[in-house]
Design a protein around this nucleic acid. Sequence first.
RNA 1: GCGGGAGUGGUGUAACGGCAGCCACGCCAGACUUAGGAUCUGGUGCCUUCGGGCGUGCGGGUUCGACUCCCGCCUCCCGCACCA
Length: 975
Amino acid sequence: MSQTASQTGTEPSSEVPPHRYTPALAQQIELAWQDRWDAEGTFRTPNPAGPLSEGFDRVADRPKAFVMDMFPYPSGAGLHVGHPLGYLGTDVTSRFLRMDGHNVLHPMGYDAFGLPAEQYAVQTGQHPRITTEANIEAIRAQLRRLGVDHDTRRTFATIDPDYYRWTQWIFKEIFESWFDETADGGRGRARPIADLVSELDAGTRRPAPGTLPEGRSWAELDEVGRRRVVDAHRLAYRHEAPVNWCPGLGTVLSNEEVTADGRSERGNFPVFRRPLTQWMMRITAYAERLLEDLDRLDWSDSLKHMQRNWIGRSTGARVRFTVGTGEGDPAAAETVEVFTTRPDTLFGATYMVLAPEHPLVETLTAAAWPDAVDPRWTGGAATPGEAVEAYEVQASRRSELERQTEGRDKTGVWLGVTARNPLTGQDMPVFIADYVLFGYGTGAVMGVPGEDQRDWEFAQAFGLPIVRTVQPPAGFDETAGAYTGSGPMINSSNERLSLDGLEKDAAIAAVTDWLVATGNGEATTTFKLRDWLFSRQRYWGEPFPVVYDEDDLPIAVPDSMLPVLLPDVDDYSPKTFADDDADSRPEPPLSRASEWTTVTLDLGDGPKPYRRETNTMPNWAGSCWYYLRYADPTNAERLVDPELDRYWLGPREPGDVGGVDLYVGGVEHAVLHLLYARFWHKVLFDLGHVSSEEPFRRLVNQGYISAHAYTDSRGFYVPAAEVEERDGRFFHDGEPVTREYGKMGKSLKNVVTPDEMVAAFGADTFRVYEMSTGPLDQSRPWETKAVVGAQRLLQRIWRVVVDEESGAVRVADVEPDDDTSRALHRAVEAVRDGMTTLRFNIAIARITELTNHLTSAYPPGTAVPRAVAEGLVLLVAPLAPHLGEELWARLGHDSSVAWASFPVAEERWLVDATVTVAVQVNGKVRAQVAVPADADAAGLEAAARADERIAGYLDGATVRRVVAVPGRLVNFVLS
RNA sequence: GCGGGAGUGGUGUAACGGCAGCCACGCCAGACUUAGGAUCUGGUGCCUUCGGGCGUGCGGGUUCGACUCCCGCCUCCCGCACCA
């Protein structure tokens, strides 16, 4: 505090009144109250039952409110002023709700597994737990200094073994279940995997399509075969999927970590697309429910939109084509299924394209080109086999990102075979091309150049025929490209089916009926959402609670063995390879912990050796369920006690989704975290572990804070704090600099930390400033020089209660005058509105008005009515809690203001005896008249006509109409 | 390209379809001062011949009345982006 004292000490202290609310005094008050809150357990939230239930009697009759932030990832850089925006928003809300009679749960935890800590460990050789825990401690201290009201007994980090034990337990639950699509009337529901096994054994259920080995039945399979079938049904399953493999870094990368030219963002090493067996989560099974239930959530439209977009539901048809009946080997006939949203255009399909990764590519590829093959179709190769191989290599070297961004020039090669169009009977050449994505639909499309722009471009590049099946409007440029609009069908009939003249919907219905009737396809729905890749070749993550037996089949370890602790290793980095060694395989750090990787267990048939899973879970796992643990953080027996789950998260009435009452966090988690958490929650709901259908009832994205940044003549950023403004221009070290604007961060050299603000002004001033700059969900610029406005406000509030010269309380038991009562109660009404709508700027503006009124109505030396002074203190307490406590105590109260009742406005003070209404002539305001508040339209009009100026306007004019809105205005419409 | 959101003083913002700009920063003036990057008070959308006129990105529309609702543009921000 000496630093702060010296700052304020630059002024001769004789000039500052001895009891002014200075930064130094604020510091002193804040530290004292923070200690007292800890000592008294002010913010301990009692549970209705269990070890944290002490004190529940006090709140038993209150409604509950669960208010929560997206927990931070504790990086070494600490917080800047942008981070606390959301934390302070929930803090003000939770303090308001507590004062307004709720039992409030407002906890905080730490998301602590993940890459940054691991990379730091790789560089320093220090165990990531050490740096992570130090970082957590630093953030915890920063938050405490801001005066947040977290129940610290409920704080945990995802790296705590007591926590990740239950992350592993949830993984097991997901692993030990499957999605029964027929359950709940076709809505689908997760069920224990044991149910599936008994139904398969009993013959009451058939294995899902594609899970049985070709030509075999469940009954014929041996034990291992049956387990493979069962494993293929699980919600957590192992699957071979193409990933971004970076040999130079020795790890798989996410799409975001790969640059546009197919190299790693870190280190600039080549990245290869290669298939790899990985753990997957069957989130796609829940696509429909995740989509539908969005309608029941109180989230912003834009956020729901992003989720809908990501889930990407589209309806259409699957159409089956017979391939290989052309010039190639007739014995090689195969069926290829395509997905299309435009089955009505089937008559216009003139070729077919498979994704390069499509499993049938190899079988379909012909041995040789036919005579007179179009040179554009061969990729310059001597045989289809060579062409395909070369093209696949080319495609694998291009990252997914690159495939999407690079030029979009259509490339591909012909497989040397054709497919039969079931409607036209024409043979259509079959290509592979990377504009068809393996992960979407069936990984194959029918090429309809007349009605699809991508297909048009491909047809142009490869000289393929174009048939229009939808009549473009008159004046349509036939050479311009595909026509994707509406219109009657043309060129779409044969002896069996005619679509000509039909509009789109009717044509789709007709062709779909025909497909079903002839066995060539059926209507279907496809989702963009893909299953969740759940393995990482990392050290710093949750180990899987999985071992493999001698048949290489995964087995979940028994609950008694949880948690599976992360072992210590010598080297936290994954094994790396030569940059261009595309055939190398990932080797995760845990695979080198040889003591750990093999284990002898008795899983029911005697002690046997097992091999542990050496991948770890992704960073998202720990953040998928932490909100549940806040309700029951100490439970060693269960994930969460069902009674506590129902109390804090359960549905409020039948049909309610339940969940956290307010969840505040950054929009950057709009899709992944929020989708994964919803998915896990729904699985836990299906399995009966939680009572609510959704995890987060109401969700708000706080805005982010940007700041000005400055570049010198060379274009380098200079420290923004050192820039001076003179006459609207900016200088650093006397040199002119250019002002820019951007997200606060190291690279722009424009970081401002809460610590600096607390040191210069105190936490309450910082809180009030940050909350006053706009609605919580709005982004805003940081402006340190404007913080003084918040400081002045708090100083004036202080002065309303405390005499700056004597330190005596100025309050007396006198009646406030009517104007003051009206000012108070109007402020109460507006502040409540601001608090509930998260528009703290409104609340602060109304508090300022009340303060300014009191400052002039009760100048120094006069007595302030107690009722009004206390009302003001209560209003500001959620925003400036330390000041609130201090003034509340000085006003003679023994107990914390945090538990005092928030004021309620009295109706009689919200209405004036007389109101001033505007009088308009032809919609323009010409006068104002005072009328009784309850004056009716006639009274308003009479009062308006009595006004001299209005009479002047009306004199000699014809009043065509009079609009009089009681309490609002009068409008004379003249002709 | 597709989808979404937003455009109001020098700045952040505020306005149940009803007096545009509350509150704050900044700025101007004054008070207290040896002093002010402290505090307090007053003023501050633009133009004005001091009557008033004009003002919420631009252009239309609905309405007695539009920042607000509708249509079309422009700009900025965000999301998705060969999703068949």
